[in-house]
């Protein structure tokens, strides 16, 4: 009889603890399929000629202009947007935190955290590869064909937006300096 009582007590404890664990946690978004890397057709074999520096080019650019820009991938801790073909390009004249500043031990020198945010914005342009709907492609860029933070990249494309400091280029070709 004692054993029966013990078993019943144990069962009651287990039942109560499992009843307490009902989940009313916030909603979770549905799982999604893995995103493929950017197709190789967007990468150029040779560096395009007459590439312009970003800061100088931004002064005269307007929407619809054909443009060739050169710069380095950076401007923030993660200059790429995960799962979208979009990144930030910073003027080559800007020095990263490991180039001559006292923050040479910075783990993410490409974020230019040693410079004021306004200066980073003035020297940056957004580069995106868009699909037929005009939205950035669902593709992974980071780590593909040499694209990585601090890599020097020449971009061929069309200016999609040029409003003040905000310049967005729809790229048709990318050349990554080896």
């Amino acid at each position: 009889m004692f054993r029966t009582a013990t078993l019943l007590t144990l069962a009651a404890v287990l039942a109560s603890t499992s009843a307490c664990s009902k989940s009313d946690a916030p909603t979770k978004p549905a799982a999604k399929a893995a995103v493929a890397p950017l197709p190789g057709s967007y990468f150029l074999a040779e560096a395009p000629a007459d590439a312009k520096d970003i800061r100088a080019a931004k002064r005269s650019l307007k929407a619809g202009d054909k443009v060739v820009l050169i710069g380095r991938i950076g401007g923030s801790e993660d200059p790429f947007v995960p799962e979208r073909a979009i990144f930030t390009l910073v003027d080559k004249a800007m020095k990263t935190c490991d180039e001559g500043s006292d923050m040479d031990t910075c783990k993410t020198p490409w974020d230019y955290c040693c410079d004021p945010r306004e200066q980073i914005t003035a020297n940056s342009a957004v580069v995106q590869i868009v699909g037929p709907d005009g939205q950035p492609l669902k593709a992974v860029l980071n780590g593909v064909k040499g694209l990585k933070p601090q890599a020097t990249v020449t971009v061929v494309g069309t200016v999609s937006k040029a409003e003040g400091q905000n310049v967005v280029v729809n790229a048709t070709g990318l050349f990554v300096k080896p």
Partner: peptide
């Protein structure tokens, strides 16, 4: 949403 935020450097 992250792409929207990135597109608005200003």
């Amino acid at each position: 949403v992250a792409a929207f935020a990135r597109q608005r450097l200003d």
